[in-house]
Simulated scan of single mutants.
Amino acid sequence: MDRETTRKVVMILIAVSAAIYLLQIAIFHEERTTAFYILQDLAFMPVTIAIATLAVGEIINDREKKDRLEKTRMLTSSFFTGMGAYLMHEILGMTNADAFIHEVVRSGADLPGTEGEIRKRIQEAKLAVHIDVAGYTKARQIITANQTNILVIASNPLIIEHECFTEMLWGVFHLMDEFRLRGTWDDLSKEDIYHFNQDFEEVLRLMLMNWVGNARYLKETYPAFYAAASSRIEK
């Protein structure tokens, strides 16, 4: 209904309610009792509003958010089955990491614990990136060649619901800017290399965190697709 129709319906309902109260008074001649119940109903209205707008509204909002997240799951999956798989592979090739990180890559969907617990372990895991000319050049080529694809994914308004994924995209965008600013491997100073090591490490952690959630979703929903995506990252 539009606003004008809603206003008319509200006025009609109020008029019907008033007419019923007047009819009750006319029939039973109990003005005091009628006034008592009117006040009692009014006293209960704040409780009703609190339950309806806060509790029920929160449940509805959570459900709508879950639906929005599900609608963008395949969009985030396309990142990993496309440039994400290649970029993760290149950065991992320049990384000293503990066994847990390699386990995340091999079997992200089967790791014990909640997604939040695994993300915390990834954040705390030993992981040190030491870029080299081959890895840097390849990573630069992957990101540069996929700038349009990254922009398309980031432009989807629903993607903001995936906070961790959005943070990862910002990290990739930062690398894109750094590549544009600092140029090829031959143009890098020692300070530039140190800075890139830190940037690559942060992006890799965020990619691994997102890979876990994405892997679980794919394995549950599209198991054959998940198997293909996993093999691409492991190669």
Rank of each mutant, 00 (worst) to 15 (best):
V9N: 02
L175G: 06
R119Q: 14
L54W: 12
E220Q: 14
V133G: 00
D98I: 07
L218Q: 14
E30S: 12
A154S: 13
Y86E: 14
E30L: 05
M176W: 07
Y194W: 06
S230Y: 02
K138A: 09
N197T: 07
P46K: 12
I159T: 08
D41F: 09
Y194C: 07
V10G: 02
F80A: 09
H29G: 02
I51Y: 13
K126I: 11
I193G: 07
D62Q: 10
V152P: 00
A35H: 01
G116M: 12
K66N: 06
R205D: 12
L39Y: 05
L111Q: 01
R140S: 11
G93W: 05
K235D: 15
G84D: 04
R7F: 03
I59R: 10
F79Y: 15
V152H: 01
Y136N: 05
K126W: 03
I49R: 06
Q24C: 08
M176H: 08
C164T: 10
R182T: 05
K126T: 14
I122K: 08
G135K: 04
H29A: 13
Y226Q: 12
I233E: 04
T6H: 05
N149T: 11
R7E: 14
E163M: 11
A109L: 01
R121I: 02
A18N: 03
K138P: 00
I150A: 10
L87W: 06
L23V: 09
L111D: 05
E178D: 14
R121F: 02
D98E: 11
I59W: 13
V212C: 06
E117M: 12
R63L: 15
V9F: 06
L181Q: 14
K71P: 02
G171C: 10
Q198A: 14
M209S: 06
E115P: 02
I143W: 09
G113A: 08
E70L: 11
I12C: 04
L54C: 06
D186G: 14
I193D: 12
I20H: 01
